[in-house]
Design a protein around this nucleic acid. Sequence first.
DNA 1: AGCGGTCAAGTTGAT
DNA 2: ATCAACTTGACCGCT
Length: 298
Amino acid sequence: MLRLGLCCVFKEHPVKFRKTTAKYLAQFPDEERKKRLSGLCANNAKSLLKALEFCRENKIGSFRINSQILPLKTHPEMGYDISELPDSDEIVNDFKSCGAFSQKYDIRTTFHPDQFVILSSPNPDVIRKSIQDLDYQAQVAEWVNADVINIHAGGVYGDKPSAVLRLMKTIDTLAEPVRKRLTLENDDRSYSPIDLLPVCAKLEIPMVYDVHHHRCLQDNLSVEEVTIESMKTWDREPLFHISSPKDGWGSSNPRKHHDYININDFPKEWLALDITVEVEAKAKELAIKKLMQDIKSL
DNA sequence: AGCGGTCAAGTTGAT
DNA sequence: ATCAACTTGACCGCT
């Protein structure tokens, strides 16, 4: 079965994830900061369960968890350990409830750390902070039973072979909770599937195939070929990404995402596969609903 | 109640 | 040299 995935937030369904800013928190004494952060984390854990319930009710098979589910978790000044929060027990229990729920109803959960997590950087401090962030997301992934932490390969720095070497070396140092979930996704600027497939094969890391990115940054491989080759990198259900260009393929910037998925952008050969396809469309759950209908009426 | 300005982080490429 | 884009809104603080 094909499983569609919702990314992070809702367009209409009233479930919200809360966050704060370091600047705002800075005005409060430490105890008050922890109290506020605790409240946000507790809210987000409960919101995650509601999000998963929505997925079950609407036959959405997968949910991507926002990187800020624990706000400012690894911030240099405002960062914290979960045990420092007044409601830490309740928070962890609520996340574990999410894990039990997703297992019971087979809702897959994933993480997609944002663009600041870069394992190919020549700057050791960037690497250090990236690993810190991955460790944090792996901690939550353990609670909620998420099986994917998906990142991009990062920058090129004028020398792609060297950047790829650094990427591979860094991945080798990762802790097991991160390593066993880590996946690499082709991006729309620097790393196409043909760059990543050998890396994924060598490190035995799955490749998340984003067909929209591939169409923006092409190599000499076809969609059919990359579909087959990336499938081979998975030891579990493969995860792919789909989106459509906001202003069409002829526009000056086709990288921008549309509110919905144009069914013509959905690779037909994916329809028969047992895969998860995360839907990167701004209309969120509405876009998934429409895509489900469009697929059905093919 | 509504709205504008702001928000941790890195890298690239368009202007 | 600056800035938007990247998975994207939510938040505060002003009116």
